[in-house]
Simulated assay, not measured.
Amino acid sequence: MTDAGRDGRRVAVVTGGSGGIGGAVARRLADAGTAVVVHYAGAVDRAAEVVESITAAGGTAYAAPGDVAEPAEMERLFDAAEERFGGVDVVVNTAGIMKLAPVAEMDLDTFDRMHRVNVRGTFVVSRLAARRLRPGGALINFSTSVTRLQQPTYGAYAATKGAVEAMTLILARELGGRDITVNAVAPGPTATPLFLEGKSPELIERIGSAAALGRLGTPEDIAGAVAFLAGPDGRWINGQVLFANGGAA
């Protein structure tokens, strides 16, 4: 693995870093000594809170806005990271949206919006990562355990994540020989505010009990999987989808 930027730290870009899982990933990477660019789309206050929590703990981070599906905006984000820190070593694509409905009832505009963020956005950022990550770097995309669990109402969302898995595994092979790993993390049900919203305690308990470990995942559980893939112990893991779901079936 390489050293990081001008101050010796590795440098990470975390898209969707203002979200529940994205924020946990940013904090976990910062705890390991990584300088973190906390990307956000509209949640500037939440991004600022993530940055503040990192800097209060002695880490290095700053927030940067942008639409993940717009190449020019993501180019500016990578440019800023390189200007501030000297380069980029880790890219984590947590940015995504989830809208649920049976396939027969899914509104196509809603599907197109999910596709734009989840598929095009991941593609735009992955393409930049392929061009700009330094040797020893890691790209970590986000899928979902629903691609295997096949739960009703998740068809459109799972379709976008199936596309993410395909591009991730192929990109790992396209980058062969450059000492850059490309993997995906596929969380199961995770106790983020977005997931918990509108669900009764009884429903939450029932969903959690479906995992072999008998509970919902936490954002920190998922962040641990990301940190493994981004760190020195994950260098021999490449072109894989890591299911982080507590044994959900």
Rank of each mutant, 00 (worst) to 15 (best):
79 D>P: 14
173 R>W: 08
136 G>W: 15
127 R>P: 06
127 R>D: 15
141 N>T: 02
95 A>W: 09
117 V>G: 13
69 A>Y: 00
110 T>H: 05
171 L>M: 14
105 E>H: 08
159 A>I: 04
160 T>K: 01
78 F>M: 08
101 A>W: 00
89 D>I: 06
182 V>M: 10
200 S>Q: 11
192 T>H: 00
124 V>M: 03
204 I>H: 05
68 V>W: 04
99 K>W: 15
76 R>S: 15
98 M>V: 13
188 G>R: 11
151 Q>I: 10
176 G>I: 02
115 H>I: 11
127 R>C: 09
144 T>A: 05
93 N>S: 10
110 T>W: 08
94 T>N: 14
108 L>P: 13
124 V>W: 02
147 T>I: 15
94 T>L: 15
121 G>N: 09
71 P>W: 05
115 H>N: 12
72 A>V: 12
206 R>A: 13
203 L>D: 13
186 A>Q: 07
128 L>K: 00
93 N>T: 01
208 G>K: 01
162 G>F: 02
102 P>L: 08
200 S>I: 07
62 Y>W: 15
184 A>R: 04
142 F>N: 02
108 L>S: 13
156 A>Y: 13
150 Q>F: 11
202 E>W: 00
105 E>A: 02
151 Q>V: 08
81 A>E: 09
174 E>H: 02
139 L>F: 14
130 A>E: 04
106 M>D: 04
141 N>L: 08
112 D>N: 06
164 V>R: 07
69 A>T: 05
164 V>M: 14
206 R>V: 01
145 S>F: 01
151 Q>P: 03
61 A>P: 09
112 D>T: 00
162 G>N: 03
84 R>C: 10
194 L>Y: 10
97 I>V: 11
132 R>C: 11
188 G>M: 11
165 E>S: 02
63 A>G: 09
200 S>M: 12
157 Y>E: 03
154 Y>D: 12
